[in-house]
């Protein structure tokens, strides 16, 4: 039951305007409570999105005194723009590395740590540590760590007699290097989500599996754990996808899109277009594409959450 306010429907139902009852809260209370948020929501979210949609149809450049509506030309330009397509495909390749890596690692960590008799807490703390670290600070560390000549990683490789790998100077490896950092910082987060899902599995199911003769750990994993973690897994995949899709900090700090555009991702390109080259119209068009993709993921997420609820 919720608190009733002067319900408009009742006012319509009655022919005569009745004196307000003391039990009815004045209608303005709810609006007064919600007003600050509603105003901010309009100013900071709805209005900017509307402006951005309109701006994507213009040739506005920051600093220009005039601009013209050019219809969908920005979008058509994007369709022909090789840099944009490269950024888009880089982003998807990045997602395709980070998501399976961080989800599988997170699941493995969750299953292994929750199965421990001792030390579960300390391990989980260690694996969660990267989640709490400031991305920019850790990016500088990783940049040095994977440095081609003086990076400790390569020094270790060399001392083992292996050839050095220069991740961030090699166009074929740079994106992978960034993806490794993201897997490192995301796996602990996913581990916590999986661990929560694991504790929700009733232990009687494992007893039942044991009685049914599934005594091997791997049998139990595939017959009980994995099926029951299904909804959690779907959710973790979608959440990780959205996180990976929004990659920006490591690119900005470590590679700046290089070498030779191999780590140029969607948000970074958009950022450069808008805030370095000040081509607002085409940056807005890119943002619209970004928003569209994010919305698809978000719909997927709601759908997955729905499924989880009904599971």
């Amino acid at each position: 039951m919720s608190v009733e306010t002067t319900g408009a429907p009742r006012a319509f139902a009655l022919p005569l305007r009745r004196k307000r009852l003391g039990a009815e809260l004045p209608g303005w209370i709810a609006y007064a409570l919600a007003a600050p948020s509603m105003i901010l929501l309009c100013l900071l979210m709805l209005l900017p999105i509307a402006v951005m949609l309109v701006m994507s149809l213009t040739n506005y450049r920051f600093g220009d005194l005039s601009y013209a509506f050019i219809g969908v030309e920005n979008y058509l330009d994007l369709a022909d723009d090789r840099t944009f397509w490269r950024a888009l495909s880089n982003t998807f390749v990045y997602v395709a590395i980070v998501v399976p890596g961080s989800v599988a690692l997170g699941l493995a960590l969750a299953v292994m740590t929750t199965g421990l008799r001792r030390g579960r807490k300390i391990y989980q703390m260690i694996f969660f540590l990267p989640v709490t670290a400031t991305v920019v600070a850790m990016a500088t560390v990783w940049k040095y760590l994977l440095h081609g000549t003086i990076g400790p990683f390569n020094l270790v490789l060399q001392s083992l007699g292996l050839p050095a790998i220069d991740f961030f100077s090699d166009p074929d490896l740079a994106l992978t290097g960034l993806a490794i950092i993201n897997i490192w910082s995301l796996a602990g987060f996913n581990m916590v989500l999986f661990a929560a899902g694991l504790t929700a599995i009733p232990s009687e199911l494992y007893d039942a599996a044991e009685v049914d003769g599934l005594s091997e750990p791997l049998d139990r994993f595939f017959s009980v754990t994995l099926p029951l973690l299904g909804p959690t897994t779907l959710f973790v995949i979608v959440t990780s996808t959205i996180t990976a899709f929004k990659v920006f900090d490591t690119v900005a700090v470590i590679t700046r899109g290089g070498p030779r555009g191999s780590t140029d991702v969607l948000l970074y390109t958009t950022y450069l277009e808008g805030f370095s080259y000040f081509r607002m119209g085409s940056a807005a068009a890119m943002t619209v594409v970004f928003l569209a993709i994010i919305m698809v993921f978000a719909l997927l997420q709601t759908w997955v959450l729905d499924k989880k609820v009904h599971y």
């Binding site: 009733e4 009742r10 004196k19 307000r20 009852l21 003391g22 039990a23 009815e24």
Partner: peptide
């Protein structure tokens, strides 16, 4: 809770308002 109709009196005086 507001009633849909009818009145509540205390000591003969309406208190609905």
């Amino acid at each position: 809770l507001p009633q849909t109709s009818g009145e509540v009196h205390i000591d003969g005086a309406s208190i609905d308002h």
